[in-house]
Structure formats: structure tokens, C-alpha cells
Design a protein around this nucleic acid. Structure first.
Lengths: 209, 209
DNA sequence: ATTTTTGCACTGACCAGTCAGTGCAATTGC
DNA sequence: GCAATTGCACTGACTGGTCAGTGCAAAAAT
């Protein structure tokens, strides 16, 4: 019986436990914040003994840091994928940005708790995982900056734009709009929200029709 | 009776102490979060005894709630003021939005810690001050929604825009861009940042010059 | 046979909130 | 004048509870 995944990373069982702990931790911390969430709660929600948490992670904050890395990894991969696909299909940079907005929305749709928690921790200072967070943020924003820069190089975007700030603003736009969507009008469809943001991106807000 | 200081509001000393406590609490909570910040720390930073905190506020979370109300009050007033001034001067709704973006930036420039803390707590659920936060958020976003709606009525904005979502996206854009500015490129001027966001608002990102 | 998980008792640091008491200025009584 | 009194703002040691992390023997899974 070659256990399914075999030699690859580590035993499958352990990986499954870690996954359960991530899922339990992410919702609890999104709701209550890191400090207000107890390890006992996380263990209970994951359906696991407290000792298991410490068998798998060195400490509560290490668990959290690995959770952050894991989550942002997924997002970054998804953004890159969207940008590359648009490029492969020979579409313009505006389309690439649009595709990334959609990818961002899809991600937030699937992992709303993670997004919540990420936003809540991002601009804090003086916390243990601060530097982890910076690195991980930079990876994600860099993908957007890359597309903007290419757009400027190709002449599709004005060379007067401030790449760094514009990238941050775009990310913020999607993040906040999406959190609002999930929190206050969750019945709306992803397409709907995407259309509204596309319109904003392309400056079709002012101007009739 | 007219006790010493007198007539206006309440005793001056008390008001001064509360102000000191607000200031101490806002920076500490912005840095560390609500739960990770202790009442002892707040008292120490404010230069008062712990008992004084409880003499002035019923509990740690009441202190925090009043802080939130106080801060968002300032922001809302400032946004309204900007929108009204643009209207008084007979400028268009795009200009009004632009003026509000600037007002938002000025606010964040002046109270970065408050902004940080606000963003961090906004999308949490299951917290004591949740409802306070909702009310207070709605007040601020409503100002932006109002201008958008007026713009649609006047025909200056497309009637296809989704007012609620667009307002949220705009707020997010300013919020996140400004926090990025303060965190990662604090040497830049407000005008600079404002110009970059104006450009984005008016869809002058794509399109040459 | 080894790795992983369980269950549970325990420790020690930390922290929100309390309370008896202090300092001080203004008011009252004489 | 000058005690005695009152009320306000503040103090800081203390209490009762909470929680991260530990230790370990027994059970389960692979």
C-alpha cells in the first residue's frame, strides 16, 4: 500500500493535520484577531488535541507565520497565472490588469477569512511576524507592478504614472471592494463585482455610457 | 457653584486626561492590535495611573469605542466639508470626488495611527464594538455614495455604475494607497500622492499623456 | 517499529478590573 | 481668619482568572 502521496514531502497524515489547523486558525484569527484567539480554540475547532498543535508547530506565532506564507503563496501564484495567460493570448496590458483583478476576486471569494486577516495585520508594526509579512506582501504587489511597468514600456500606459503607488492603489481597490462585497452584499455575483471594478479601472465612471 | 474651570462641557483636567489616553491608546493599538495592548501600557504611555483609565472609561473596550467614534467623526466632517466646498464653488462631481480624495489623504497624513487601527478592525466579526464600527463606517462611506448618486442624477456619471461598490472601491483605493505611502515611501509629498490617485480616478492611466 | 496523535494535569506569566486611600481646591461653619 | 468638610480626579497594590506552553504515558496509525 504505498501510501498515496508516498515519499514526496512528509507523511500525508501529518500534512492533513497541519491543513486542518490552518483552516481552523484562519477563521478564528480573522474573526477575533491573533491575540484574542487561543490555542485551545484552534485545537478544538480543528478536532485535534492541544499537544498536536505543538507537535506540528513550534509555537502559536510560528503557526500563524506559516499560515501567512501559505496563503499569500496561493494568491501570488494565481495572479502570476492570470497575467501570463493574458500575455500568452496576446492581449494588452489593460486586459492583463483586468484578468488579475478577476483572479484577486476569485481568491477572496474562496478565502475570505484569509484576506480579512491579512488586511488586518498588514500595516501593523512591532509584531513578531512583521518581516515575514513585508516579504510576502512585496511578492504579491510586485506582480502588479511588473505588469504596469511592462505597460509603460510598451507605451500602453502613460509614462507619467507612478508604478509603485498605482499598484498599491489597485490592490487596495480590489481588496476593499471585495471585503465590502463579502461583508455587506454577499448575494451578488463575482461577475457583477468584477464588472463594476473594470469600469472603474478603465475610467468609464465619468462619461456617459 | 460654577466650579473652577467651568462653564464649557466638563472640567478641563478630566478632558485633558481623556485626550492623553486617546493619544496613547491609538498608537499602541495601531501597532499591536486591541487585544495585544494592555491597559497598563496605555496608562504608562499616557503618564497616568491605571486607576485613572477606569475612572475615565468604563472598560478597555469602551475606551476603544469612544476613540473610534471620535476619530471617524473627524474624518466624516472633513469629507463633508470637502464635498460641500466643491459644490459651493460650482465645480463638477468629479472635482468633488477629487477634493474628497485629498481630504482623505490629509486626514491619513495627520492621523496615520488611527487609520491603521481602523482598517485593521473594520472587517472583523464577533467583536464587542462591531456595531459601533458599522455605524461609523456607514457614515463615512455614505458621504462618498452621496456624491456619486448626485453625479449620476446630474448625468455626470454613467448610470450604470454601482454606487455602493464604487464608493467602497474608492475608499479602499485611497486608504490602501495612503497606508502604503506612510509605510513605505513616507518622504513623498501629499501632492504627489494626490496626483497619482487623481490620474487613476480619471482613467488617465491607459492612454498616452 | 516508528511516527503521530491523544488526553490531561500542571506551571507560571500576564492582565482586566477593583478598591481603599491620597492630594488638593473650593465651600462651609464659626 | 482658620478649622472642618466635601467632592473630584487620581493612585497603585492587589485579586481572580486566563492562557501559552510543558510533560508524559498510553493509544492509534502506517
Amino acid at each position: 500500500m504505498e501510501s498515496s502521496s508516498a515519499k514526496a514531502g512528509g507523511s500525508t497524515r501529518r500534512e492533513a493535520t497541519r491543513q486542518k489547523l490552518y483552516e481552523a486558525a484562519v477563521t478564528l484569527i480573522a474573526e477575533q484577531g491573533f491575540s484574542a484567539t487561543t490555542v485551545d480554540e484552534i485545537a478544538e475547532r480543528a478536532g485535534v488535541a492541544k499537544g498536536t498543535v505543538y507537535y506540528n508547530f513550534a509555537s502559536k506565532s510560528v503557526l500563524f507565520e506559516e499560515l501567512l506564507r501559505h496563503g499569500v503563496g496561493l494568491l501570488t501564484a494565481s495572479l502570476k497565472e492570470a497575467a501570463e495567460q493574458a500575455a500568452r493570448e496576446g492581449r494588452g496590458k489593460v486586459d492583463a490588469l483586468d484578468a488579475m483583478i478577476r483572479a484577486g476576486l476569485v481568491f477572496i471569494d474562496r478565502y475570505p477569512a484569509f484576506t480579512q486577516l491579512y488586511v488586518a495585520e498588514l500595516w501593523r508594526t512591532n509584531r513578531a511576524w512583521q518581516s515575514t509579512l513585508m516579504v510576502v506582501r512585496q511578492e504579491a504587489v510586485a506582480v502588479v507592478e511588473g505588469v504596469l511597468r511592462e505597460g509603460v514600456a510598451v507605451g500602453e500606459f502613460s509614462d507619467e504614472i507612478d508604478v509603485q503607488l498605482t499598484a498599491a492603489a489597485l490592490v487596495g481597490m480590489v481588496l476593499v471592494a471585495a471585503l465590502d462585497w463579502k461583508s455587506f452584499q454577499p448575494e451578488r455575483s463575482l461577475d457583477d463585482v468584477h464588472a463594476a471594478l473594470s469600469r472603474l479601472l478603465q475610467g468609464r465612471v465619468s462619461g456617459r455610457v
